[in-house]
Design a protein around this nucleic acid. Structure first.
Lengths: 188, 188
DNA sequence: TCAAAATCTAAACAAATGTTAACGAACGGA
DNA sequence: TCCGTTCGTTAACATTTGTTTAGATTTTGA
């Protein structure tokens, strides 16, 4: 619980009492590689904070092919936020790549935060803004860089990613086939 | 000013007095087709609300090729939010496609809002969340749909777009060449 | 420890997409 | 109104990327 408190305090000013209220419904959970944290088709009612490990978010297309849309590392929050906010069935799943320890924040905790924290909306705003900047940057990258260039840059966004996830998942994240990524690496 | 007030009231509860404070530094501006509202390389210190018209946001890659990353329609806010939030030089420009009337919200107005509005952070959170959902959806679309499918779906996001912007800009938005879009249309 | 599964690379071929050039239609400013 | 510009389409060819298959290596789990 130390880690998540530190992450929260980096965003907002929060009293010890408030912190206890926010975290009272939260609990820790450990999942093994390939285990699912959050499943497509279900409404996401939880946000996860990663204490240790790494996860990937996946989405399945009409042909049944699975795509990796995101990796999440230590000290980051992860969820299908669209599903969480809209209360619609999640389009993506979240699964552990390594053995991963998370703190589960149920919807009740988040709603308690918006209602009772002095800076609850501010925290929501900062989280949303953080992801906004991330998505915005990612979108611009997609217009401006080739897949090879995006491969070269990926460890800026996900440090040490090459040592932690198999290459075919990186290819999936880049939107290219694993065979093609292997080809591109030869040229770099 | 009616329109922007209506848009704001759809997000938050705000008194008439607060509204006047928020809008006191805002002003109206009209630009002709192809005129620039916001230029790449400059720090964005303004958010625009579109009363009438349509704009596109563009980014230029290393080879000097211009890409259309976004269209913005009536009753929407538009800016390079990353530049606005981070106070870093904007990567993209915003230009009018049709003759466009906007309300300019300078940074001073936004900051006044965060500081003085009862629900200032809430408004910030809702705007950021709205864009989060938009980007998230857009990203998932890119993994799951082919360019042809994204072309077929584009008018769900940008109603009537086909009658308002030249096709080569739509191709640019989709990330394909205008020639290729022309080819794809034949097959649909 | 050992067999099965996962992973990466490579080659050959197929499909998708980009580039260039040409042409006619529509559009816009003088 | 007229002429230059922008726009959309088409064809031919080039490049990029996907698919399939195979083989070698590593990892995993019983």
């Amino acid at each position: 619980m130390q880690q998540i408190q530190h992450a929260i305090r980096q965003m907002i000013t929060i009293s010890q009492q408030e912190m206890e209220g926010l975290l009272k419904d939260c609990y820790s959970k450990t999942v093994k590689p390939k285990e699912i944290l959050s499943k497509q088709g279900h409404i996401s009612n939880e946000i996860f904070f990663i204490c240790k490990g790494i996860t990937r978010s996946t989405i399945v297309d009409q042909s049944g092919v699975e795509h990796t849309i995101h990796f999440s590392l230590e000290n980051q929050f992860v969820a299908d936020y669209s599903s969480f906010m809209l209360k619609t069935p999640a389009l993506n799943s979240i699964e552990a790549i390594e053995e991963t320890e998370v703190i589960v924040m149920p919807r009740s905790a988040i709603e308690w935060g918006y209602a009772h924290l002095q800076q609850g909306d501010r925290m929501g705003r900062l989280i949303a803004e953080y992801y906004f900047i991330y998505f915005d940057n990612r979108l611009k990258n997609q217009y401006v860089f080739t897949p090879a260039q995006r491969y070269e840059n990926i460890s800026r966004v996900f440090p040490n990613i090459h040592n932690r996830v198999p290459q075919h998942m990186i290819a999936s994240y880049l939107g290219i086939s694993p065979v093609h990524l292997s080809r591109l690496k030869k040229l770099i």
